[in-house]
Structure formats: C-alpha cells, structure tokens
Design a protein around this nucleic acid. Structure first.
Length: 870
RNA sequence: GGGAGCUUAGCUCAGCUGGUUCAGAGCAUCUGCCUUACAAGCAGAGGGUCACUGGUUCGAACCCAGUAGCUCCCA
C-alpha cells in the first residue's frame, strides 16, 4: 500500500483518541503503585479553548503521560468551575433573547434555565481538550456546582464561620455595574486611559470666594459631603472652619484638612465622596462626614443623587460638565492619563461602592495556618520558576480580607439567615437555622428567617478543588483522597497565583493539615509577536481548534511547548506550529522509508561489517539522550526535553543512522538490520509520546504490525549500560568531504578519493564503509598525499581529490587558520601559567588542566607545522 | 509611590557552585542542490563589545554598586 509523503493527522488523531477511551487507558483507581496526581485548574464552564488553555493543558498532559510511562499510577482529574458571573451573564443574555427578563422570574426558575444552559454548553471546553489529546480520567470529571461539591462549599463556609474566620461587614467593594455584583481586588484590571480633569468651583456661601477642585469624576459630586485640603497648604488656610456649596445640588459641606491630600496634584483640593472612593471613604470615617450613595447598582444615578436620576454615570459626566459650564462653575477641562479599574469578567468600569459583604478574615486565617507561607518559602512546595516565590511572599504578608459574596443567583447560596431586625445566624438549612436562632435568642418564637440573597464567589469553590474532587470533605478518609492527596503538580498561569495556588494551599492546610501539591509549574502568558496578551477582544488570538484542524494536535502541542520555559511569556507565532508540523512530516517520512524496504536474509559485505557498529553508535546516542531527557523532566524543563528528542530524531536518527542503515536504491535491507532499526524507532516513539501522542502511537502500531498494546502502557525507555562509540573523527571527515564539495561548487555526484595522514587509523577503518557511503568516496587511503584539497580532522591532515574536478592551486588556508587559532590559544594558557597569582590561587586540578591544555596545543601546532612545510 | 524580576545572535531562549574546548540551541537569513523517505526536504555557511559605566578578582556573561530601558505585582 502506498503511504502518502505528507502526514495527515486528522483521521489518525480521531481514531486513536477513540481507541484510548474505549480501552480505558486514562482510568486510574488506587492500587499499589506510586500515585501521580494532577487536578486540572478547572476552566470556566462557559469557556472555549484559547491559547492559554492549550499551553497549560498540553503541559499537564505531557507530565501525566510521562508519569504513566515511568510506572506511576497517574491520575489527571478534569472538570470545570461554575463561573458565577460569566455564566450568569450568559444565561441572562440567553433569556433576553427569549424575551424573558431576569427580574420577572423566580430564583428557582432562573437556576433551572442556568442548569439547562450548563448541560447544553458546559461541556464544550472538555470536548476540546480531548481533541488536544488530553489524557484525563474522564470518569472523574467534576463540576464545582454539582451537589456534593456544593455541599462541601457550604459546610466549609459554616465551619469557617464557626471558627470565627468569616464575618459580614460593611466595606467598600469593587462594584461591577454590568455584572451587578461585587468582585474581588484580584478581578479588577487597571488600565491606563485618556481622561479629563475637570476644574470645578465650590463657592463659599454668600460670597464670591471659592475653592477650586480638580476631579476626573464630576458626576460623583452629587455625593460630595466635604472638600479636603492639605493642612500645610498655605493657599487654603483661610478656609479653616468654613463651608462651601456643592454645585448643582447646592449642598453646604465642610472644608476639612488632611495630610493625605497631595498639594501638588490638581488644585491641591480633593472633593470627598465617601460612598464612591475608597480613599474618600477612609477620610469620611476619619473626619466623620456622611456618605451619600448617588448610584444605583447598574451605574445609573440613584434617587439619593437628587439629579439626573436614572441616567447612566458616563452620560451624566458629559451632561454635568455642560451644566457646570453653563452655571459658571466649570473653570476648565484638562486632558490627563490615569488608571481606571475594569471588571475582569464584564470589562465594565468598576464603581467603588459601600455594601454589606461576607469576608474571610485572612489575618486570622494565616495566623492559624503559618504553613501557607512557610511551605512555599522553604520549598516544601516548589515553585517553577522559583523567582515567583517573592511575589507569593509579598502577597501573603500583605494579605487583605477576602470578599466572598457575590450578588448573583448562579452559585452556592450563602447559608446565612436573618430575622426582620437583621440578626444573623449561619446554618445549613432553614430548620437548623431556626434551631440555632432559638437557642441564641432565648427560645424566640420566630417562625421564619430569610436566607441571604447572595452566593459565594466561584473561587470559594475552586480553592477546595484538590480536596473536593476526591470527596475529601464529605468523606475525609475515603480511599481516593488517602491515595491521591496531596497531589503532585499544579500547572497554571502566574496571574492565577492568588486565586488558586495560594488559596488551595490555604484550604489544604486548614482541612487536611497537608499541602495540596508539591510542585507548581507556572506557564507563561501567551502573547502575540507584539507582546500583546492574546485575547478575544483584541482579536489577535488564533482559534486553537482551527489550528488543530489545519496542522494537527501534535503540531500544535509542539508549537506551544517549544518556546515555553516555565514562567516566561510565550510569544506565539505560527512558525512554531509549522515547525511542529514539519517535524511530524519528517517522522512520517522516516516511517515511510522504513516500511518501504524489502528484506533479505543474506547480509551484504556492508551489512556484515557495519550493522553492529551503526547500531552501537545509535544506541549510545539514544542512551545519552534518555539520560538528558530524564534530567529535563526532573527539572520541569519540558521544552528542553522536547528539543532533545527533536534533535535525537531529526539529526541522529534521520540524518545519520537511517542513512547508514539504508540499503542502496532498489536493494533490500538485511533483515537483522531492519529489526534493529524498528527497535530504535519504537523507542524514539516512546520518548516522543508524552509530547506528541498521536503520531507516536500511529507509527509504533505500524512498526509492530497488528498489536493491541498502546504506548501509554509501555515502560519509559531506560538507558542501557553501553560504552560510548567513538566516531567523532569519522563524522567530521564526512562533513569535511561534503563541505569541500560545497565550498568549491563540486557536484555531490562526483566521487572523491581521500587520503588521511593519521596516527589513529582505527576510527577511520572501523567506519570506512560508512564514510564511503555517506560522502560518496571511492577510495580511502592512509598516508600523505600532496594532491587534492586539504583539510583537517583534529590534527589529521586530509587530502581530497574529486574525480573529474581540477584543482587550481594548493590550498593550505585551513591549516594556517588552525595554527593561528592554536597559537593564540596557547598564548592565553601560557599567560595564566606564568601568572604567579594564578598559580598561587587557582585550585591544583585547574592548574593541572591548564598544563594539559598547553601540552595539547603545543603538540597539535607541531604536527600541523610539519604538515604545512613537508 | 512601595516591591520583585528581566536585558546574551534578526526572533525566542539555554548558559548549574566565577577558570577559552562557553560564547550555545531552535527558528529565521544566506549559498548550493528537485541526490527517488521527506522542497513541510538535503548539504553547508555567516551572525553576538553577553544593556551601559565603574568595582572586586590572577581571571567576570556569571559577584558588587550605579545608570538606562522593559515587564510584573501592590498602592
């Protein structure tokens, strides 16, 4: 059967993934082997595969497949998180299309729609991971909103509350007016934008005197309750004890003084809007001025604002500037750049807002669990790259309370219950809440408590993930959690360090008394060539699925792995995927070659003489590479490991070994040689398999004929105890002969006559036939020869005559160049050896080494001179 | 404003405890080849004052200080 010269991955990938699943290759259950566990950082259930996922999950798959092959019981637990804000937004949008307004339906009805949505679209990203070849144990797929995991979340909330680690407080939060919910500090992205600074006059009552305030947010003046200057600012001392009138609303407010105000910025006076700015809020508390909330939850002006009610904040900004100008309150507008917070989820401009929220008291939490910091700092948990320990340290030591409530319906509803006065109890059910309540309030006869309307932050689910996926809360001693926990590696992006890594560590120590994982591998952020983060909104991200269609999953995996050392940004470029595709094609063609050979039982002279030395050489290359690759795996240097395999296959196997083993055109190969070739090829495919699972599986099956075994179930090759084959001189000679052809424009078809002047016949002799074969040499003789092009292999002089090509003049340039280099080298070595301080300070073995260098250089120079002048 | 990190070939990156066989790899570039496994290829080649300035040292890409530029985190 004819095999195509181009590798076409599509059918092959579909075929193998199905067979892997049918044969339950990725299934893991506890047994006697050493476990190797990764829990997937659960992707957002609304998500579709993007470049970051690709990289992240490719790395996890490489680690898991490798672990499986080295004999561990590898378990990769997949799943998704419920992504409250994102999912709720999707569901609201879907309802809107159906003509349903969220406000018009009940909470239960809404959740019904949400689950419907989740069932329909929630599995997309997991299906995409299968395309990528991910070897997850799909039977273990979990979801943060499923019943059992949700129960754990609620139990943990109650438990932490009982331990005094959770409280409800009135705080300034980051309000997302599009999502209509608070978001955590970590979910706010600050972007530099072009803004205007508005200079507004606040008049002293019944006077022409005024204070000029500069603000970027004039619409908030409706909530102003003071203006503030620096007490050391001479310009404003005369306003001590005075009041001013807030324009538009005509509210009389005090002028207060605080060192916080920067006299240099704007006019040196700050308007104080305690309800809408964190700094103002703090100043408001300090100076005891009230807060007026002038916005509704959707970012429109509230009744309390008194003006522009119902108008959007940005429309108001424009309108108010106009109105202030008309009334003579606006002095000027000035263009400035400032940083504005945006919601990571909805991209709406964050509105600081005071509201009642639930918090985890992080100071207390950390005091209970000092291991959260210590384990990372003392490498009980390793970070790759370790430099990120600094960031972690900094964050943990300056940690702030964690706002865990979200004003949404999609999520675990907070198990807090209130009576009509706002007294609160925390309990799992209404019945339990009543019970607790009655105890707490002297057998009160209250029959009904209302549950908190809010849900818990999604991260409050996913921080439990490494435990909850093994049901470690529900059943803390079950076989799975005992076997798989602590897990081994977590692979995630540095930007997730606080969302997941830190918090998983926190829950690990609080609830298991143990770390959740031993290694954290931080991938880079995938950027385009212009160093812009790849994102949908920028439209600079290629669709990974289309890429896999065009190039194959293996190529895409290689493309993302190649330039991705831990912690560095990945500058993604299609040329890397092309390199992956080209590599697949190269392997494919080697496979075509090998499968195309006819065999014979009788060995030609060539096979008699060179099969075994060729094989020994390849084995020693293979051994060396295995050792190197293993080291790379130990250090999580996956791109280096991949590069080592790449070079082993392309250079050593294809460019050298196959060329050596290849029969002349049209002739059969010696059967024993073919057996060896296939064995080598098979081992190469094993080494490649964690990186490129599909093509390696396909080829191995082809090589073995009909076999029911899978690479996944084979053992990772171990380096054999072989002595190294010394061949450098032979290979250099081949390169030299080719090179001289190239330099002089001699066709490769012209055969060469080569003579070598050497004291070391052995190595050339043992590779003689190979040398002739690979560089089109007709005769190889030993001794001096004045004719021909001259070259050097080490200090052996080589003369090459190309049959049918006339040399114009004797060429000694290479000899001279080499002598020059060696003379310089010798000089520098001698300089050291004659330096008294060097001799006094350098270690003895170093001096020994230098002396050796000196001797080597001298003898080489001498040999070369002889050759040059003889 | 506070903290951390980075700067090595055109690009992306290696370079472990300072010692010319350490100045490297892959890609890209250039030259010559359609040599029947592969032009998604073959055979070769060129390319770097290791950001800058000082210092320590017999010796610095590597250690120290300062400067410049970039990135990230926090405010």
């Amino acid at each position: 059967m004819e095999i195509s010269s181009k590798y076409s991955p599509k059918d092959i990938e579909t075929k193998w993934y199905k067979l892997w699943l049918d044969n339950k290759l990725f299934r893991s259950v506890p047994d006697n082997r050493e476990p190797y566990t990764i829990v997937i950082p659960p992707p957002n259930v609304t998500g579709v595969l993007h470049m970051g996922h690709m990289l992240n999950n490719t790395i996890q798959d490489v680690l898991v497949r490798h672990a499986r092959m080295v004999g561990k019981n590898a378990c990769w637990v997949p799943g998704t998180d419920h992504a409250s804000i994102a999912t709720e937004a999707k569901v609201v949008a879907m309802l809107k299309e159906k003509g349903i307004n969220k406000k018009d339906i009940s909470r239960d009805e809404f959740l019904g729609y949400a689950w419907e949505w989740k069932e329909k679209y929630g599995g997309i990203i997991l299906e995409q991971l299968k395309k990528l070849g991910c070897s997850c144990d799909w039977d273990r797929t979990r979801f943060t909103m499923e019943l059992s995991l949700s129960e754990s979340v609620i139990d943990v909330f109650i438990d932490l509350h009982n331990k005094g680690l959770i409280y409800r407080g009135s705080r300034m939060v980051n309000w997302d007016p599009a999502g209509k919910t608070a978001v955590s500090d970590e979910e706010v992205i600050y972007k530099e934008v072009d803004s205007k600074l508005y200079y507004i006059k606040y008049f002293v009552p019944n006077s022409d005197n005024y204070i000029m305030v500069a603000t970027t947010r004039p619409e908030t003046l409706l909530g102003d309750t003071a203006v503030c200057a620096n007490p050391n600012d001479e310009r404003y001392k005369k306003f001590i004890g005075k009041t001013v009138i807030v324009p538009i609303v005509n509210r009389e407010v005090p002028v207060i003084f605080d060192e916080y105000v920067d006299a240099e910025f704007g006019t040196g006076v700050l308007k104080i809007t305690p309800a809408h700015d964190i700094n103002d809020y703090n100043l408001g508390i300090k100076h005891n001025v009230p807060a007026i909330d002038c916005f509704n939850e959707d970012g429109t002006m509230s009744d309390a604002a008194g003006f522009y009610i119902g108008m959007d904040r940005f429309a108001v900004r424009k309108q108010i500037a106009k109105d202030l100008a008309e009334s003579g309150h606006l002095e000027k507008e000035e263009a400035i750049k400032n940083k504005v917070g945006y919601s990571e989820r909805t991209d709406a401009v964050i509105e600081p807002r005071i509201s009642k929220q639930w918090f985890v008291d992080m100071k207390k939490y950390m005091a209970r669990n000092p291991e959260v910091l210590d384990s990372v700092m003392n490498d009980e948990i390793n970070f790759y790259p370790p430099k990120l320990k600094n960031t972690y340290n900094h964050w943990i030591t300056n940690i702030k309370d964690w706002c865990i409530s979200r004003q949404l319906w999609w999520g675990q509803r907070i198990p807090a219950w209130y009576d009509e006065q706002g007294n609160t109890v925390v309990a799992k059910t209404h019945e339990e809440a009543l019970e607790v309540y009655r105890k707490q309030f002297n057998n009160s006869t209250v029959q009904h408590l209302s549950q908190d309307e809010d849900v818990l932050d999604t991260w409050f689910s996913s921080w439990l993930w490494p435990i909850s996926v093994f049901d470690g809360f529900k059943d803390p001693k079950n076989a799975d959690i005992n076997y798989y926990y602590p897990t081994n590696d977590l692979v995630t992006a540095p930007e997730i360090m606080f969302f997941w890594v830190a918090r998983m560590i926190m829950s690990g120590y609080e609830y298991r008394g143990q770390k959740p994982f031993s290694n954290v591998y931080y991938t880079g952020i995938v950027r385009d060539k212009l160093r812009r983060k790849m994102s949908k909104s920028l439209g600079n991200s290629p669709d990974p699925l289309l890429m896999m269609d065009d190039y194959g999953a293996d190529a895409v995996r290689m493309g993302s792995l190649l330039c991705s050392p831990a912690g560095n940004d990945i500058l993604f470029d299609m040329s890397q995927v092309e390199q992956g595709r080209n590599f697949c094609n190269k392997i494919w063609n080697a496979y075509r070659l090998v499968m195309g050979w006819e065999t014979t039982e009788t060995a030609t002279e060539y096979y008699k003489n060179y099969t075994s030395i060729t094989q020994d050489w390849m084995e020693s290359r293979l051994n060396k590479a295995i050792v190197e690759i293993n080291e790379h795996f130990d250090k999580f240097r996956l791109s280096d490991a991949l590069m080592a395999i790449y070079k082993l296959i392309w250079d050593d196997f294809c460019s050298w070994y196959l060329e050596m083993m290849k029969p002349p055109y049209g002739e059969p190969i010696y059967s024993e040689a073919l057996v060896q070739v296939k064995l080598v090829f098979e081992r190469l495919m094993q080494l490649l398999h964690p990186f490129m699972p599909f093509i390696s599986e396909e080829i191995r099956h082809g090589l073995l004929g009909d076999s029911n075994s899978f690479i996944n179930n084979t053992s990772w090759p171990t380096p054999a105890d072989l002595k190294e084959v010394e061949n450098d001189a032979a290979f250099e000679l081949i390169a030299l002969i080719r090179n001289k052809r190239n330099e002089n424009g001699i066709s490769p078809k012209l055969a060469a006559k080569v003579s070598i002047s050497t004291n070391n016949l052995g190595v050339y002799k043992s590779f003689e036939g190979i040398i002739k074969k690979l560089s089109n040499v007709e005769s190889l003789t030993f001794g001096k020869n004045d004719k021909g092009l001259k070259g050097l292999v080490g200090k052996d002089e080589v003369s090459i005559e190309y049959i049918g090509w006339e040399m114009k003049q004797v060429d000694n340039s290479e000899l001279e160049k080499e002598i020059d280099y060696l003379t310089g080298f010798l000089k520098s070595v001698e300089a050291k050896l004659t330096n008294e301080k060097f001799m006094a300070n350098a270690k003895p073995d170093l001096v020994e080494k230098e002396l050796q260098k000196k001797a080597d250089a001298e003898s080489k120079i001498e040999t070369l001179r002889k050759q040059l002048f003889s």
